[in-house]
Design a protein around this nucleic acid. Structure first.
Length: 485
RNA sequence: GGCCCCAUCGUUUAGUCGGUCAGGACACGGCCCUUUCAAGGCCGGAAUACGGGUUCGAGUCCCGUUGGGGUCACCA
């Protein structure tokens, strides 16, 4: 079996949207699973839509996700150049070869004539569409004469007039289309440049691409591609068309609509590994029930035949859950490292992060959840609602909380071992002495220290984090407010 | 509109050659645990778009209907 070579061929037109990234992932995995070659080709022939810096975004995104390419613009390779705009010289010869073989022909029709024909058809109530084949059977002599006269021309692919054209797709199976449906599409434009369809086929062949992996918007043009391979006598690739990633049931996820791109998600605090893991599962599923995988596991189990046929809606909730899964699996050290900048964006006073980590990790699904959770450390809302002290489960209210805090205050003041264990061991026995549950005593402490009901830890945990001085200060303020009721 | 493709819980999916209560995950609800909130554990509600066939038996095969997507450029 010949070598597996796949390519990711994006247009550098802006940010990387997640559908694109998924296609890249699938192409990457297909190559790696077979110990093949993964190629990056930049398709920048649409100068109108080029965006500065977009190529770097492609490089960075792929690199961030460990999707390294073996051949590409920056690393070279035996089949370059890998930037399409640098390959423009090679296509005319291939188009002429096709004319030579009778599979393509010169067309001298002007845009005006084409427009007129379209108008006529419209007027006659016919379906407007295909080129009418006006130049399909020009004599050799006439072609020679008009070329010599310098008339502008394009080269069109000559489609069969009858029968069916078929191709096989790894996910969609055998697809047949009536030859009469196919248009004599332009291969070489009047400026001598190839159309995308033509350049793509020629490039894929020259780069020895064995598996063509792309979005299923190309499904309808696949028969034409196949015909091209046949006309040249080239070996056809395995086609793998992927269904689109949808924003909702009706529209695709797209950057034009301002939908979240990969970069946006990262900015929002999603881990790139989690994003990729989620994308892997969007439209594809492995054998067992497992959902979180290392890159090695992905490569090992990958099978493109398991790609789904129908569109899949991007579900941010599920991404959140996968992200939370990744965070939970991190070591405290790893988590601390990535969480630090998010925490320090709102906590300026020097604090010991370690007592927080164990409590923060399971409470944070995405990193941007962090700031609001630790905000209270430096900026507590002093006017918090005293009704927060009411808790059904612990049978507390403003009055019992005042009692609890008054009991805790001297104990806290007398505690010298200001550690998790030290503070808890000092406070917990009070509950026993008073004959109450731990929650009755300590729930109010959390409210007094944070001014909110959702905190990254219990009352004594918070005390340790904000330090003895602030703890006493806040407890006394709480006692004052509650006494004033 | 022509052509092509698709159709299982709200979402994402499993269901390989038709044959065990249609399984998992997310979300949702409940319970347990508990110094808050989470996390975790347990339990629960939730789907084969519709109509016809074929068959002893269909989510699975066939036809139709409906719904949705894609594509019909000297764009990529």
């Amino acid at each position: 079996m010949s070598e597996v070579r796949t390519r990711f061929a994006p247009s550098p037109t802006g940010y990387m949207h997640v559908g694109n990234l998924r296609t890249a992932l699938y192409a990457y995995l297909t190559a790696r699973h077979e110990n093949g070659t993964f190629i990056l080709r930049i398709e920048d022939t649409d100068q109108e839509r080029l965006v500065d810096g977009a190529v770097d975004i492609i490089y960075d995104t792929l690199k961030e996700n460990g999707m390294t390419w073996d051949e590409g613009p920056d690393v070279g390779g035996d089949y370059g150049p890998y930037v399409q705009s640098e390959r423009m010289g090679i296509f005319k010869d291939y188009a002429l070869q096709l004319v030579e073989k009778g599979s393509a022909y010169y067309c001298f029709c002007t845009e005006e004539r084409l427009a007129a024909v379209r108008e006529e058809m419209k007027a006659a109530g016919e379906t407007v569409g295909k080129y009418d084949g006006h130049c399909r059977n020009l004599s050799k002599e006439e072609v020679e004469r008009r070329l010599a006269a310098g008339e502008p021309y394009v080269i069109r692919q000559k489609m069969p007039t009858e029968g069916v054209v078929a191709f096989d797709d790894l996910v969609y199976g055998h697809i047949e289309v009536d030859a009469s449906e196919l248009e004599d599409q332009i291969l070489l434009k009047s400026d001598g440049m190839p159309t995308y369809n033509f350049a793509n086929v020629v490039d894929d062949h020259l780069m020895k691409i064995s598996h063509v992996i792309r979005g299923n918007e190309y499904l309808s043009s696949a028969p034409k591609y196949n015909l091209l391979y046949e006309a040249f006598g080239w070996e056809k690739p395995v086609y793998i068309h992927c269904p689109p990633v949808m924003k909702d049931a009706h529209s695709k996820l797209s950057k034009r609509n301002g939908d979240a791109s990969y970069q946006d998600l990262v900015k929002q605090g999603y881990l790139s590994a989690a994003i990729v893991n989620y994308l892997l599962l969007l439209g594809w599923s492995p054998k067992g029930d497992k959902e979180i995988f290392t890159r090695e596991e992905m490569i090992e189990m990958w099978n493109p035949a398991w790609i789904n046929k129908s569109p899949a809606i991007f579900d941010i909730q599920k991404l959140r859950a996968i992200n939370a899964g990744y965070i939970n699996r991190m070591s405290d050290e790893e988590f601390t490292e990535i969480a630090r900048p998010w925490i320090e964006s709102v906590v300026k006073s020097p604090i010991e992060l370690s007592p927080l980590v164990a409590n923060l990790k399971p409470r944070c699904e995405i990193l941007s959840d962090l700031p609001e959770r630790v905000m209270f450390i430096d900026h507590m809302n002093e006017d918090y609602d005293l009704a927060f002290y009411r808790n059904k489960k612990f049978k507390t209210d403003e009055s019992t909380s005042l009692t609890a805090l008054k009991a805790l205050e001297p104990v806290l003041e007398g505690t010298t071992d200001w550690t998790r264990e030290g503070v808890y061991n000092a406070c917990a026995p009070i509950a026993q002495e008073m004959g109450v549950k731990g929650g009755w005593l300590l729930y109010p402490l959390g409210i007094a220290l944070a001014g909110t009901q959702a905190t990254p830890g219990g009352g004594t945990d918070l005390a340790v984090v904000i330090g003895k001085e602030r703890t006493l200060e806040r407890v006394r303020k709480a006692i004052a407010r509650l006494s004033a009721l």
